[in-house]
């Protein structure tokens, strides 16, 4: 399990941003923080770092999202392992 801290930058138009925001709300892998202007901090939980990267690319392709910055990654791969 990998936990990443990301910052989403929305496109400049409110409609585009709300379109993208609706998409983010639907995604169960994401925990959304408090938006700051057109930036939104989020936390993503993925099975491993590779699928984390895939997720970031996926987010980048959502219409209305201008960019995705990766702030922090925790590589606790064994978190859900056979403890």
């Amino acid at each position: 399990m990998t936990v990443s801290g990301l910052v989403i930058t929305f496109m400049d138009t409110p409609e585009a941003a709300s379109f993208a925001l609706a998409r983010l709300h639907e995604d169960a892998r994401l925990l959304l923080g408090e938006p700051v202007a057109n930036r939104l901090p989020i936390v993503a939980e993925t099975a491993d770092a590779t699928s984390g990267e895939t997720l970031v690319r996926e987010l980048e392709s959502i219409a209305g999202i201008a960019r995705v910055d990766v702030i922090s990654i925790d590589f606790a791969e064994d978190l859900d392992g056979p403890a």
Binding site: M1, L31, G33, V36, L79
Partner: peptide
């Protein structure tokens, strides 16, 4: 638990970064 801790600290880091991007230093790139 550890997952909760990781989530909280990731969110804190992301929120701080979002604030910096929005109000102080602009986004990179």
């Amino acid at each position: 638990d550890r997952r909760e801790f990781l989530r909280t600290s990731a969110l804190a880091a992301a929120s701080a970064a979002a604030y910096r991007m929005a109000h102080g230093q602009p986004a990179p790139g």
